[in-house]
Each structure stands twice: as C-alpha cells, then as structure tokens.
C-alpha cells in the first residue's frame, strides 16, 4: 500500500506551517535558482560550453577550486587537531580559544578581507616579514589561500568536536591494553570514528571557500588569468551587462560544486560502510 502523502495527525498547523515554508522557500531560494537554470537552458549546452571553456573562465575556475581544495585540506587536518586539543586537553584560555574558533562565522567577510590585506600587504606586519625573505603574500595565490583558510577554519572543528566528546575512553584503553601504541590507537581506533564528521566539515569548508568573495577580493590583487577567482569573474561579467557570460560561469560553479559534494558524500557512505555507524 502506498504511504499517504501526509499521515493524519491531531496536531494543528500543518497547512499554515507548510504554506509559510513553501512560499518563502520558493520566493527566496527556488525561483531565483530556477531563473539561473532557465537562463542556462536558453543558452543550450553548446552556448554554455562556449563561455565556460573560455581561457579566462577556465583559469578562474581552476584557481578557485584548486585553492579551495588546498585550504579545505589544511582545515581538515588542523580542524581535527584543534577539535582534539579543545575537547581533550585542559589548559588556561581554552574557553576563550573555543569561542574564538567561530570568529570567521561572525566576522563579516569584507572586514576579514581588509584586515588580512592590512596584515599581509608588503607594508603590513606579516607582509614586511615575508618581504625580508624575498616573498610576497598579498596579491598572490598565497594571499587567496590564507583568506580561504580563514573562512573555512571553523567547519571541521565544529563537526568533529561533538564526536570527540562522545568517544568513550574505554575503547582507547582496551586498545592500549591489547598492546597498541598510542599512535596506532589514534590511527586505527580514533581516526575512523572521526572520519565521517571530519568529511562533513571538509565538504562544508570546501563549499564555503569555492563561493567565497568578500574576504578574497581585497587580498587577491585580481589579476586576470593569475589571481582572479570565479565569483569575481561573475561580478565583472555582470558589471559589463554580459548576463549570459555570468550565468554560464555560475552554472559551471554550481555543477562542479555539486559534483564534488556528491563525491565527498560517496566517500562518506563508503567509510560508514567500512567502519559502521559511530
């Protein structure tokens, strides 16, 4: 027998709640996204490809996704370490540090952008330090990478932290009693338990970095073909009233993002199947 669309319930407010939910969801999110897809459909696959395979577009997409992947990988490793330190160790200032991890969520991206630029520009505190070693950070890929690491910092920590707190010490003790070294226990017992949550955080950080605009454009220098990220190219196309070009880049970004997220999701399912739910 088919499941009914809505199970009967004495609880009131289904119509009103669903009404508000679907109306706002459609008006604010779904209709605008549909407008983008309709525009893309109007261009056709050939038209989309013609724009998206342009030299400057490919360069910006490659830059955005390559640097976002590196930043998310850094945040994956550092985020797990941070989650571990914050929930396992007791040291003065731990609460402050714990609260500060969310700063990138709370600090507006434009503020982060100009602050990072002030620090890493050749006359800034860190920038001048780098200059003595003959290196440049702001207005190069390194600057973009730092901005992307900044915005993606909290995700892995925040998804992994609750899991670390749930781990029962007995499991680690059992492993130690059976002769495993601490490193072996971390690698074979702890890491598999943290992996699914860490991957979720990785995916969130990646999605956030790929689309990031505010914190990057100030520090990037925005040189076409070199330090021009894909979201900036969309803005440039819009300012030129090239709506087709902007839409094609937007669709390319969405397509690559969702493919990556699906792939990460598949890895997650695979790890869960291998180690079971924890």
């Amino acid at each position: 027998m088919m499941r009914p669309v809505v199970n009967k319930s004495p609880m009131p407010g289904f119509g009103l709640g669903m009404g508000i939910t679907l109306t706002l969801l459609s008006l604010v999110v779904l209709l605008p996204i549909a407008a983008l897809l309709v525009k893309g459909a109007g261009l056709g696959l050939a038209g989309l490809w013609a724009v998206a395979s342009g030299e400057r577009v490919v360069a910006s997409l490659a830059l955005s996704f390559r640097l976002s992947l590196i930043a998310a990988l850094f945040n994956l490793v550092f985020g797990v370490l941070l989650a571990w330190v914050l929930s396992r160790y007791r040291f003065p200032g731990r609460r402050l540090l714990d609260a500060a991890v969310d700063l990138p969520f709370a600090l507006p991206t434009a503020v982060a952008g100009i602050a990072l630029t002030a620090l890493y520009a050749p006359n800034g505190v860190f920038g001048s330090l780098a200059k003595t070693f003959g290196a440049r950070i702001a207005y190069t890929e390194w600057g973009i990478l730092i901005a992307l690491i900044f915005v993606g910092l909290p995700f892995v920590t925040r998804t992994v932290q609750p899991v670390v707190e749930e781990i029962e010490r007995e499991v680690e003790e059992a492993s130690a009693t059976l002769g495993a070294s601490r490193l072996y226990t971390l690698r074979r017992v702890i890491m598999p338990m943290l992996a699914p949550a860490a991957l979720t955080g990785f995916a969130l950080a990646l999605a956030r970095s790929v689309g990031e605009y505010g914190s990057v454009i100030f520090i990037a220098g925005n040189i076409p073909m070199k330090t021009e990220i894909a979201p900036l190219l969309i803005v440039i196309r819009l300012e030129e009233f090239d709506y087709n070009g902007a839409a094609a880049i937007g669709i390319a970004m969405l397509t690559i993002s969702f493919t990556l997220l699906l792939a990460i999701n598949a890895v997650q399912v695979w790890t869960r199947r291998r180690i079971g739910y924890v």
Binding site: L25, V29, L30, L31, P32, I33, A34, A35, L36, K39, L204, A207, R208, V210, G211, E212, Y213, G214, P231, L232, I234, V235, L238, Y243, A246, A247, G250, M253, L254, S257, F258, L261
Partner: peptide, 22 residues
C-alpha cells in the same frame, strides 16, 4: 532544499536574483 543556500556561492545567489528580477 532548505540547506541549499549553504552550498551556493553568495555571488551566484545575487546573480540568480538579478536574472529573475533585474
């Protein structure tokens, strides 16, 4: 669908609105 805005770039979100209502 409710979570969708988290995986859409803010710039793309703005672009969608311009295409719909520009």
């Amino acid at each position: 669908l409710i979570d969708l805005p988290f995986s859409v770039s803010p710039v793309v979100a703005g672009l969608c609105l311009v295409l719909l209502l520009g």
